[in-house]
Design a protein around this nucleic acid. Structure first.
Lengths: 333, 333
DNA sequence: TTGATATCTGTAAGCGCTTTCATTATTATC
DNA sequence: GATAATAATGAAAGCGCTTACAGATATCAA
């Protein structure tokens, strides 16, 4: 059914080497020959087969972005940044999901071992140093976004600092009884944000109350979902002494929390986390993370390191920025 | 650096055919040999190379989901459905973005021509019959989700009917001056929804007012974005006679519209479109589309047709369901 | 024991390309 | 016009696997 390089060569009266050269933009083919080959190829709809090409040339021109369970708004932003950069090149972007049910290290090793791609971008994939080291040993070009490993390029955001900033905003305005809506225990970023939340309170001489740190029961997306925020907020409001303000580990949960408050006709200042695009329209105060930017820079770095000899490691740390909107209005400055 | 099947065969003292058999779960290898080979492979971290495998076996065990610009909440839901099904199998899901700047037909032909995947799921990729026919001629297994082509399996949602339903809700309650927030002109689904909106009004003996059909100026995501809804709503409110109710081609735009109303302290009943997860928490009335379901069914169908001989074509049409929430509250029943 | 059958393993021929190297055709240089 | 340099092409050897096919070994009934 489908044609091979041999068919094209035969029909064009040239050797397969020449056909190959035409498709590889090698300059070493005369304009006349190129035209002839291209004409025939177009007519029969020939295109070099990806697998054969990959095998013979040992490169694929594909970049794989590895993300955990798609459907997180955070990834979307990052992916958009990546996409923007990649689409300006000849590379192709494929997106690969690591499944939450299976050991991630195992999945990564399986993926990289297969050698589909010329380079990999890991977005929000969280492993510890040892595990990353094991992945790095597979010797593929990679850069991490939203995680760090000392032996590799990365772009990271400081989760602890972000949560500290949000909490500090309330502390500086005299609040001493602050709630936190966090996510699943296994979530590393949620853990760090929680830590920052507690840490700064202690620095202010307060003893954080455990009952004010809550998480909903839903495991979907590691607890980063609306329902979770909704449940958690109800839980907080049911407390003997409900919080005077709330810090949340994601915007999406904050939206659920807002809905819970509305239901009970209560309004407590709240700060989310991420600054997803919606938040502006909801009026949600939040910690902005440079998602798009990290995507762009990560992709750019990866692409560069594919062509040039990589020089030294690029390891950047960002701190989220506090964006104030209406959910924190009316608090005395 | 990396090992080939020859290295493993040599170290295990067997032929490469045997190593290959071990990795292909062929039963024709004794338990002892299998164990020996696996042990060595694990020790050195060997894994068959994807390209060589694909070339030799003419199959890849990858499914590619093709979506337009990622970052649309609609796709996310569909992808989740797809992902759920695929992850129960040995197949791998890759996601491929068609770029809005380039001719989609060309991109699809390029993608399929390369023959990366065993099967393709097209999600919300809109081509006309002739173009689909041209894609189909590439002879790859494919199923369409959220578009239709007579020569191929598909799962489609009737956009016109959806918009008719939403509009009818208002018409039946005596509204005669209804606004529509639509998206970019080039968007096919938005066009159909718009058509349904106008059509039913005429059936009710009304003459729809052109000035009540608006779109924001932002081209991002074909106009399916918050800003667009926000701008459009302001435009509607600035009219000499603003609408008494609004139908919107997406939830995300409705959220922008809500924000615009809030700014002006006005509250007009509004119905969105999609029923993204958020909408429940925002209290947005909307047209629910079976996104997750279509993803699941589409993936299942594709997978089935890869193993069994495909019987007859599966072509399903869904109609969105009207979900009433607080943005349509207070309307006399 | 013997042939028939079933089970396991190896040999070797591809899969459809890229790429080195050698060869031939063309052009430039004096 | 002879020689050197350059440009365009082809022959052929892989790339790292899969998979007929054939061969070897083990198992079993008679």
């Amino acid at each position: 059914m489908s044609h091979t390089i041999y068919d094209i060569a035969r029909k064009a009266g040239v050797s397969i080497a020449t056909v190959s050269r035409v498709f590889n933009e090698s300059s070493k083919v005369s304009a006349a020959t190129r035209k002839k080959v291209l004409h025939i190829a177009n007519k029969v709809g020939y295109q070099p087969q990806g697998y054969a090409r990959g095998l013979a040339s040992r490169q694929s021109n594909v970049i794989i972005a590895v993300v955990p369970l798609l459907s997180n708004y955070f990834f979307l932003q990052v992916l958009n940044g990546i996409q923007g950069v990649i689409s300006e090149t000849d590379f192709e972007l494929h997106i690969y999901n690591v499944k939450p049910e299976e050991n991630p290290l195992k999945q990564l090793k399986r993926l990289l071992g297969r050698r589909w791609a010329d380079g990999y971008l890991f977005v929000s994939v969280h492993l510890d140093e040892d595990d990353w080291a094991e992945v790095a040993r597979l010797n593929q070009r990679m850069v991490l976004i939203d995680d760090a490993y000392s032996g590799c390029d990365y772009f990271q955001i400081n989760n602890k600092k972000g949560a500290r900033k949000a909490t500090k905003f309330f502390l500086d305005r005299g609040f001493e009884h602050i709630g936190m809506i966090t996510a699943a225990k296994r979530s590393i970023p949620a853990g760090k944000r929680c830590k920052g939340f507690l840490e700064i309170q202690r620095e202010y001489g307060l003893t954080p109350d455990d009952s004010l740190v809550v998480r909903g029961s839903t495991a979907y997306r590691d607890g980063f979902n609306e329902r979770n925020g909704y449940e958690a907020m109800h839980q907080l409001l049911a407390l003997d002494s409900p919080p005077e303000a709330v810090v949340c580990v994601s915007d999406i949960q904050a939206i659920g929390a807002l809905s819970a408050m509305k239901e009970q006709g209560i309004r407590i200042p709240i700060i989310g986390y991420d600054d997803i695009q919606l938040s502006e329209y909801i009026g949600l105060s939040t910690m902005r993370q440079p998602m798009y930017k990290m995507g762009r820079e990560g992709a750019r770095l990866l692409l560069d390191s594919l062509s040039e000899r990589p020089s030294e490691l690029v390891q950047e740390n960002y701190t989220p920025e506090l964006i104030l909107r209406s959910t924190t209005n009316g608090i005395e400055q």
